[in-house]
């Protein structure tokens, strides 16, 4: 059973379109597996729509150009009539393009089907260190790095903490750390307050979003900087 959900603040930002693509996609993957969050998102979207489009006269005077519904025709800072003409010259989009071909990735000979939200994301060449395989998701979001990370059965990530945040969305399999066991769909957020050492008995595939490099906290593991940048 899914036990870890995004906080409501995150869902609100998601609904408002204010999160980076990487985190938005993580929430979408979670919501597809979690009816509770999915319904909450639907409610929040309705609420956001009602607030945005409320029929109120408060529009008057907010924007300098939009003087709102004083007369029959509102005023714009562009030629509304010609915009309407241009738009209504366009044909309707009659066919609905729904591409249902699953996308997949093969890491160390194991093929994984990927969530639909990743359909148009390009993936970097897989790289390996020990029991970890990683493929970068090429989203170009600056210091925010997203990856697919596979832990092979019996593999683990040395104990570490984070300068920024680390979001892990478990796609397949399971892993555990000192805070408990995680299952597919769990949305796990960690920041500098947490330290953990995830390990997977049977192997797993995760979607990860990391905002800064990892800090290894135990003596010998400080030598593991390459893994830190590997995971980041």
């Amino acid at each position: 059973m899914i036990n870890h959900h995004p906080k409501i603040e995150l869902l609100i930002q998601y609904v408002n379109g204010e999160l980076p693509a990487s985190i938005s996609a993580g929430i979408k993957i979670h919501a597809d597996l979690c009816p509770k969050c999915n319904n909450q998102i639907i409610e929040l979207t309705k609420h956001a729509a009602e607030t945005s489009f409320a029929q109120e006269d408060t529009l008057v005077g907010i924007g300098s150009e939009v003087l709102s519904l004083k007369g029959d025709e509102p005023e714009y800072n562009f030629d509304a009539q010609s915009m309407i003409n241009n738009i209504t010259d366009m044909p309707a989009e009659t066919e609905l393009k729904v591409d249902d071909t699953p996308v997949s990735i093969t890491l160390r000979g194991v093929e994984y089907e990927l969530p639909n939200v990743m359909k148009h994301m390009s993936l970097g060449k897989p790289a390996q260190i020990g029991k970890l395989s990683r493929s970068r998701i090429l989203l170009d979001e600056g210091h925010i790095h997203s990856s697919l990370l596979r832990i092979e059965a019996g593999g683990s990530i040395p104990e570490h903490t984070h300068n920024g945040y680390e979001i892990t969305l478990l796609l397949e399999g399971s892993f555990k750390d000192d805070m408990g066991e995680y299952v597919a769909g769990d949305f796990i957020v960690l920041d500098g307050k947490h330290q953990h050492q995830p390990m997977s008995e049977l192997g797993c595939l995760c979607y990860t979003v990391v905002s800064d490099s990892l800090h290894f906290t135990q003596g010998i593991n400080k030598l593991l900087n390459p893994i830190g940048s590997f995971i980041y």
């Binding site: 379109g17 693509a21 938005s24 996609a25 319904n39 639907i42 939200v117 989203l139 170009d140 979001e141």
Partner: peptide, 26 residues
């Protein structure tokens, strides 16, 4: 990000907006 990948329709698909009614208590 200088990306024209138009991911929004994968993140919020226009085709699936119906509520799933599997939670009698909420």
């Amino acid at each position: 990000s200088n990306k024209e990948d138009n991911l929004s329709d994968d993140i919020w698909p226009m085709v699936e907006m119906a509520e799933v009614d599997d939670e009698p208590f909420s």
